[in-house]
Computed example of a mutant assay.
Amino acid sequence: MSYDEYYVKSVIRTLPDWPEPGVMFRDITPLFKDPKALRMISDAFIQRYMDSEMTHIACIDARGFLIASIMAYQLQKPLVLVRKKGKLPGKTVHQEYQLEYGTSAVEMQVDSVSAGDKVLVFDDLIATGGTILAACTLIKTLGANVIECAALIDLPDLQGSTRIQDTGIPVYTLLAYEGL
């Protein structure tokens, strides 16, 4: 089965004015009810990273967990979690980042990655890039290197993928949607 952008986009639901007026929310949850679409996107990412030098996949809370866990299983790579602050047990490091309306923070357990590890950062969507950039900072703080950031969806009008690339980290996405 090959990747079909039009089919996958037909499964993703667009919710206007959610969570606030003017936002076109791209809801990927229907993908998880459609085995064909889920297989298409999973296989596309697995094919891309099959011969990669990556040693770990870092996935971002929470929808990023779902696709990245399939990738980690198929590629036989460790999966490490980047979660909202206060959700991980044990010793953690955290990084704050700016939102349109304030700040938020993500964290990782201190033994998630270490020096010499080559990490792929995965999330479901890139908007402003703040969450992914915070995850990259955490990974670097722990001594590892980020080899690429990947997401199912890019919202290029919000410039997040450009902000990530401006730090020298490549970005790969399967889909792009114009607008907010």
Rank of each mutant, 00 (worst) to 15 (best):
A150L: 10
M54C: 13
V23A: 05
T92F: 03
R39G: 12
A72S: 14
L133N: 06
R26W: 03
K36Y: 09
A150P: 10
K91Q: 15
T131E: 06
Q47C: 04
I132C: 14
I132V: 15
H56G: 02
Y177A: 07
D117W: 02
I164T: 06
Y101C: 02
I126L: 02
Y7V: 06
C136K: 02
L120C: 11
T167W: 01
A151Y: 01
L158Q: 03
D43Y: 09
Q47W: 03
V82F: 00
L120I: 15
A115P: 00
S69C: 07
M54E: 11
K118M: 07
T167N: 02
A144K: 02
M50C: 00
R83M: 10
T14G: 01
Y6W: 04
D43V: 05
D4E: 14
K118P: 08
K91E: 15
Q98H: 11
L15M: 14
G160C: 02
T55F: 01
E100S: 14
R63G: 09
D43P: 06
S112T: 05
A115S: 14
P78V: 00
V8M: 07
S112R: 01
G143K: 07
G160V: 07
T29F: 15
L99D: 06
L75G: 10
K9P: 10
L158A: 08
K118S: 04
G64K: 07
R26V: 09
I164S: 05
V106N: 14
Q47S: 14
V171M: 04
M24A: 12
P170S: 08
T173H: 09
P21I: 01
I169N: 09
L31Y: 09
P78M: 02
I139L: 07
K87D: 09
N145V: 00
K77D: 08
A37R: 05
Y3R: 05
D61C: 10
L88C: 07
L138S: 04
L81S: 01
S114H: 11
A134P: 04
M54R: 10
D111Q: 13
A151V: 07
I147L: 11
N145F: 00
L38R: 12
F122I: 13
Q95W: 00
K85A: 14
E96S: 15
F122Y: 15
L120Y: 05
L79R: 05
I41M: 12
D34S: 13
V93N: 07
D34L: 10
T162Q: 11
L174Q: 14
M108A: 05
M1Q: 13
S69F: 03
I126T: 04
Y7N: 13
E5R: 14
A37S: 11
Y49I: 01
Y3W: 12
I67F: 13
G179I: 05
P16I: 12
L152N: 11
K84G: 10
S42D: 08
S10I: 11
L155W: 06
